Amino acid sequence: MEPFPELPQSVRLTEIAPGYPVLEVRHPRCTARVALHGAHVMEWQPVSADFPVLYLSPDAIYQEGKAIRGGIPICWPWFNAHPSDPSQPSHGHARTHFWELDAADADPLGVHLCLSFQHGDLTAFVDILLGETLAVSLHTTNHGNHPVPLSGALHTYLAVAAAEKVQIDGLDGDLYLDTVGPRTERIQEGLVFFDREVDRIYENDSSALLVDADLERVVVVEKEGSPSTVIWNPWIDKARALGDLPDDGWRDFVCIEAAIANDRAIILAPGGSHTLTTTIRVEDH
C-alpha cells in the first residue's frame, strides 16, 4: 500500500489485526470505522442515533482475501456470480483486496474519505461521507479500448432490533426476482416482511424505507445510478451455515442494497464512467 495521506484530527489509523489497517472516526457528528480492506464501511452511528445503524458480525474475519460480514461490502465489478466465468469470485474483487487511501479530510459537517482500486482496465474510486448522514459513492471508469459490462452493489447491512418485526416500504408494485428456491418473478404487494429467508432482486431505482418499530425509527436508504434493489436476510438455516455469522445473527440485520444486477449491467464505453451511490439517514418513527 502507498503511504497514507495526512489524517484530520477526527480520524485515527489503527490495526484490528496485524497488517489490517482501519480508520476510526470520532467526529462531533458521528462515529465510524472504515477498513482499507475493501474500502469497507464497518460501522457508522450519527450522534442523533442511540443504536448502531449498520450491523457488523461479531464473528467477522479480518484477513486479506476474506470479505467482512456486515457494514457495507462493495461488490464490484460484478454482482453475485460472474456472468460468464464461474471460476471468478462471487461479487468481484473489490471486497477482498486492500484499497489505497487517497485523501481524508474533515469539516464541521463530517469526515470525507476517498479510496481507490484498480482491476484490469477498470478503476474504482469510492467517496465516503460520514456525518449525520452516510453517503457512499462508487465511481468506475473504463480506461481500456473496449466496452466493459459493469454490475455490482453496495451491500448494506442495517442493524435492527429483530428482523422478524421490521418492514420495508417503497417497493410496492415493483417486479422482483425471488431467488430462494426456483428463481421466480413476482410483483411486490404492499410492505416487505421477514418471516423466512428473503433474497430478492427488485427492478427499482428509487428509495426504500426500513421501519423498525421496536427502535422507534425509520432508516431511509436512497440511491442513484442503481436500477436494482436487493433485499436479503438469510434466516435461520442459512445463518447457521455461515461461519462468520452467529447462529442467531439473522435477527440482527436486514440488507437493503443499491445494486446493478448482472442482467441489468451498464455497458461502459472506452473512457466511460458510472457512479453508484447509496445514502443513509435515520428518522424518528
Rank of each mutant, 00 (worst) to 15 (best):
V180N: 02
V230L: 05
A265E: 08
E132N: 10
I267W: 11
A35H: 06
P149E: 04
V111G: 06
G110Q: 00
L154Q: 01
L138P: 01
R200T: 02
D169I: 01
L150R: 01
N262H: 07
L134V: 02
V41A: 07
S84W: 05
Q188F: 01
A153W: 04
W44P: 08
D195C: 11
R95L: 10
M1Q: 13
E64H: 14
H274T: 07
Y62M: 08
P18C: 07
L13Y: 08
A261P: 01
A60T: 06
A241Y: 02
Y20T: 10
W232P: 03
F193V: 15
D263F: 05
D237F: 09
P21L: 11
R240L: 12
L36Q: 12
R95S: 13
D107V: 03
D107K: 04
F51N: 13
L109M: 10
M42W: 10
A103P: 06
L101P: 08
E132H: 08
V25K: 04
E100L: 15
A241W: 03
S57K: 04
V126A: 12
I61H: 14
E24R: 14
D195N: 15
C114V: 15
R95E: 10
F98N: 00
E132P: 05
G225P: 07
I201K: 08
V221A: 10
S226T: 04
E15G: 12
A103T: 09
E2M: 13
E43N: 12
A106F: 03
W76K: 13
A239W: 03
D205Y: 00
R33V: 06
T275K: 11
L268N: 07
D172A: 09
N262W: 06
R29Y: 08
E15C: 12
L7C: 05
D59M: 13
G92H: 07
C114F: 08
P83Q: 04
I72P: 07
L171Y: 00
G170E: 00
A67M: 14
L210H: 11
N262T: 11
P77S: 14
K238D: 05
V11R: 03
P246W: 01
H91F: 05
F125N: 07
